[in-house]
Nucleic acid binder design. Structure first.
Length: 322
DNA sequence: CATTCGTGAAGACGAAT
DNA sequence: ATTCGATTTCACGAATG
């Protein structure tokens, strides 16, 4: 786990741009985005790392996802492999109930039956899995007010996790939550980890673990959430003015210029900026109010909002009084 | 009296060894 | 598996208004 793990609060991981290639999910053309150093599928919009995609005839992988990378060679037969053939219900031996060998014609016949048997059990199991997951994604997305396109992206991510056999050992619910969280961030309308956990049936810990896992294994590119994306939502539930909201965003911009945002949670920064902006606009809200809306502690707001104000003064955005 | 401020200790987490 | 560093939180008391 060297370079592909990305702290939620950190900058995006590096990826080398490349042209061509096809989407591992839907087979569409991959489009390089040079400004972000990432690649996305022109058809389904999935964002993937270049690192794990074909770069030529050589297979060269630098981290521990070698097995996954190799799994991309050859036909995608994962549909048939969901249980690794461990639960075959038709005996593999070409013998009848008395141990006699079957005739050639019967052997062929049973061979076909086996194939169909596996297809049915595999597809049914995956269908059930997918149906439940999609239902959960829909439910959580509604509760969080996330639009349809985010749900679709989440379902694409979930399908890929399912296809890549990432589900065993993890609950459907945790992966569904993780997929939705990632999709919301990719769409630029993030929800906080706490918000996700509050509508999910799994706790924060489990969902975070699943999220790390699928991001790493799927090579998902999820940019750092912009703190200002939380501002308008929190500001409006607090009943702040447009002016205060604008100031909060400006404070965040200044903070980011001075690298005050590295290593800090976007939610914390947003909360601090909102409070600082309210002070500047002389709108009466308490640290506790902001803390409860953003679901961070008031202590953290204290430590951050002063930093923001200092930075703003240094730039001359506000004078030292007020 | 409510709110804000300051501080030390503690928990959690990712990164590195 | 354990350590390390940074961030966030908790708990408390003092200051402010």
């Amino acid at each position: 786990m060297s370079d592909s793990t990305e702290r939620e609060t950190n900058e995006s991981t590096t990826a080398r741009p490349v042209g061509g290639g096809s989407c591992p999910e839907c087979g569409g053309i991959l489009l390089p985005d040079h400004t972000h150093g990432e690649i996305s599928c022109g058809d389904c919009g999935l964002v993937v790392h270049e690192r794990e995609v074909d770069h030529g005839p050589e297979w060269r992988v630098f981290d521990l996802s070698e097995a996954d990378a190799k799994s991309r060679v050859g036909t995608p037969a994962t549909l048939l492999w969901h249980d690794k053939g461990l639960s075959t219900t038709i005996d593999w031996q070409d013998r009848d109930g008395n141990g006699q060998l079957l005739s050639a014609a019967q052997r062929r016949r049973f061979q076909r039956l086996r194939v169909w048997d596996q297809r049915f059990t595999a597809e049914n199991a995956q269908d059930r899995n997918l149906r439940q997951a999609l239902g959960e994604i829909d439910r959580m997305a509604s509760a969080l007010g996330l639009p349809q396109n985010v749900r679709e992206t989440a379902s694409v991510i979930y399908r890929q996790a399912l296809k890549r056999d990432l589900l065993p050992g993890r609950s459907i619910e945790s992966v569904a939550t993780a997929a939705l969280y990632a999709a919301a961030r990719q769409a630029g309308i993030p929800r906080s980890i706490v918000e996700m956990a509050s509508v999910s049936r799994v706790d924060e810990r489990e969902f975070r673990r699943a999220y790390r896992y699928i991001v790493r294994e799927l090579g998902l590119v999820v940019q750092q959430a912009d703190p200002s994306q939380f501002v308008s939502r929190y500001a409006s539930t607090l009943g702040l003015s447009r002016e205060a909201e604008g100031r909060a965003v400006e404070l965040l911009r200044i903070a980011s210029e001075r690298n005050l945002d590295s290593g800090r949670s976007p939610v914390t920064l947003a909360a601090a900026a909102i409070y600082a902006a309210a002070v500047l606009e002389q709108e009466a809200i308490t640290q506790t109010d902001v803390a409860s809306v953003a679901e961070v502690s008031d202590v953290t707001i204290r430590t951050r909002y002063k930093e923001l104000l200092e930075a703003a003064e240094a730039v001359g955005y506000v004078s030292s009084d007020e």
